[in-house]
């Protein structure tokens, strides 16, 4: 195996994964204050009003598609009775749709960040790198979704190649041959993605992990004590006026 192949398909992924894990740990410990979405809606809300939901819902759908495509082996879907053809068309249409929505939202957000002086001023170097990486990823991904999967005459079977390699990384037995045969665009997309995940913990993207789902089951009003709660006892008044 050539050094280049080892570097690209073994060392890079593991390095990225390690950075991803350690980076999160470090960031959460050292920069709890900076952990958030750093919204700029208060500075500009017209474009954000449609662009941000489009981008977020689009990219969440795309991420879900990636999970399905990479994690679930083709043999499993077939065992479940989903034909390769059926799966392909579902993935192609849903993927293209998600890609389109993401691109539209992303362009809106890019436009707003570069033209609105207020928003531009809040942009940090980390934001620039995030936008840079996202631009590549989103464009490649959407191109693949459209040109290859949806409209391509013979779409590439990434589930039997890139997917196999991806899963093999987590089994700690990297199957490099599975990926080296993939078309250039797929390979580029994979390499960019690892760079993206490596940078993820150092960007504002960490707000993804703070999606406040527990809010649903929480009481409305929260109280906190500065000091430990006293031992509660019932007195005559409380006994008389039991409150509903």
């Amino acid at each position: 195996m050539s050094a280049g192949r080892v570097l690209l398909w073994i060392i890079l992924p593991y390095l990225a994964l390690a950075t991803f894990v350690v980076g999160h740990w470090w960031r959460y410990r050292s920069d709890r204050f900076g952990w958030g979405a750093r919204s700029t809606q208060i500075l500009e809300r017209k474009i954000l009003g449609w662009a941000s939901p489009a981008f977020h819902f689009g990219i969440l759908a795309a991420a879900g598609g990636h999970v399905i495509g990479l994690v679930i082996p083709a043999s499993l879907t077939e065992a479940l009775g989903i034909s390769e053809n059926g799966y392909h068309w579902f993935a192609a249409i849903a993927g293209a749709l998600a890609g389109l929505v993401t691109v539209v939202g992303f362009l809106g957000l890019m436009y707003r960040r570069s033209t609105n002086a207020r928003v531009r001023r809040t942009t940090t170097p980390a934001d620039m790198i995030t936008y840079f990486l996202l631009t590549f990823l989103v464009l490649q991904g959407t191109w693949i979704a459209f040109a290859e999967n949806l409209l391509g005459s013979s779409p590439y079977h990434y589930r039997d190649s890139v997917g196999v390699w991806w899963r093999s990384l987590f089994a700690l037995q990297p199957d490099v041959d599975a990926v080296t045969g993939a078309p250039f665009l797929y390979q580029l997309h994979a390499v960019c993605a690892w760079a993206f995940w490596a940078f993820f913990p150092f960007s504002r993207l960490v707000h993804l992990w703070s999606l406040p789902v527990p809010y649903i089951g929480r009481p409305h009003i929260l109280y906190r004590r500065r000091f430990a709660a006293p031992r509660r006892r019932r007195t005559a008044l409380a006994a008389r006026r039991r409150t509903p």
Binding site: F33, G36, I42, P212, P214, I221, L222, R225, R226
Partner: peptide, 25 residues
């Protein structure tokens, strides 16, 4: 949604815990 805001039991002052605020506004 983050549960970053709270009312203090002792004196009723309403505060934001900025370590828990995630910018949901």
């Amino acid at each position: 949604p983050s549960g970053a805001m709270y009312k203090r039991e002792e004196d009723g002052i309403v505060l934001v815990d900025q370590q828990k605020c995630r910018s949901w506004r």
